[in-house]
Design a protein around this nucleic acid. Structure first.
Length: 109
DNA sequence: AAGTTGACTTAAA
DNA sequence: ATTTAAGCCAACT
């Protein structure tokens, strides 16, 4: 069974983990993009929930996930510090400069 | 069972 | 540029 054909909620969760795990340092990815990459393109909101419930012990770089506008997660100001320490540029207090820091999966060079 | 919520997104105004 | 509206769907009331 390939992961793309998986159906259950736990498979979705694992798929999200898998994608987030691959976001390079200094780059960010949106909930919507992650949803697309997992094969569940309409579950952007659920990506957020999965990450919110992710145990810290997994050590996923969930701070590299922002919304489509580049906004960091509400009620998690520490995310900004984490991203700044990786060199991610911000346009404002709450928004990442997506033009500079969004991870474009296509660009492999 | 029915209504609400949310670490979302896109399009429209 | 900012704000609204509608669509989304599993979890939670």
């Amino acid at each position: 069974m390939s992961s793309i054909e998986s159906r259950c909620p736990e498979d979705f969760r694992e798929a999200v983990y898998e994608v987030v795990r691959q976001i390079p340092a200094g780059r960010v990815l949106s909930y919507g993009k992650i949803a697309e990459l997992t094969g569940w393109p309409r579950r952007a909101r659920h990506v957020g929930r999965v990450l919110r419930e992710t145990p810290a012990s997994l050590r996923l770089p969930c701070h590299r996930v922002v919304n489509s506008a580049g906004r960091i997660a509400p009620s998690w100001p520490e995310q900004r510090t984490l991203l700044l320490s990786e060199g991610v540029s911000f346009r404002s207090e709450q928004c990442v400069n997506m033009a500079l820091s969004a991870w474009r999966v296509e660009e492999l060079i």
